[in-house]
């Protein structure tokens, strides 16, 4: 399937060391609860401050893992546009993100490659910092179109090797 969507980004435009545009987001209790409920995570440390403080020993409720992943995905595809296709994502939440924190998303291209099926990949190093301190760090591998007619979403089976 070829695309009729103009790519926002082409693989040939990228260089190792390029940084993605920064994204800032002010976190509120609503941010945390919306993310937890959207991801069907009913565990109380993501909506009940008393539980978070008394059972988890944290100062407040905090952003849950699948919502953290959804934030990273949004950040990456804001950059790639709809033709960017996420192949891999990993992250470590070193310190939770709480209401009152301002998240600052950053990323750098660490590697660019083309696999034997002709799929073009950007490997990214990711971070979410608060007040200059990294709270979550991670890595992502995202497929980027090589030319306007290239559509990573059309890849299946042996042609998709994330």
């Amino acid at each position: 399937m070829s695309t009729t969507c103009t790519p926002q980004l082409l693989f040939g435009e990228l260089k190792v060391g390029d940084r993605l545009p920064a994204l800032r987001h002010q976190v509120t209790a609503t941010t945390v609860v919306l993310g937890a409920l959207a991801s069907r995570d009913w565990r109380p440390m993501h909506h009940d401050k008393e539980f978070a403080v008394n059972r988890n020993g944290t100062p407040d409720i905090f952003i849950n893992t699948p919502n953290n992943a959804a934030w990273f995905e949004r950040y990456i595809t804001d950059w790639t546009g709809p033709l960017g296709r996420l192949g891999r994502l990993s992250f470590q939440m070193k310190t939770p993100v709480f209401p009152g924190d301002e998240m600052l998303f950053g990323a750098e291209i660490k590697a660019l490659s083309t696999d034997d099926a002709g799929c073009h990949w950007a490997d990214l190093e990711l971070s979410i910092s608060v007040d200059g301190q990294p709270r979550t760090v991670g890595k992502a591998r995202v497929a980027i179109p090589g030319e306007p007619s290239d559509n990573p979403w059309s890849r299946k089976g042996a042609r998709w090797k994330p």
């Binding site: 893992t65 992943a69 192949g87 994502l89 990993s90 992250f91 470590q92 939440m93 998709w160 994330p162």
Partner: peptide
């Protein structure tokens, strides 16, 4: 608590 999370995505 979740210390780290890694995912790979197919179809």
């Amino acid at each position: 608590v979740v210390a780290s999370n890694e995912a790979s995505f197919g179809e």
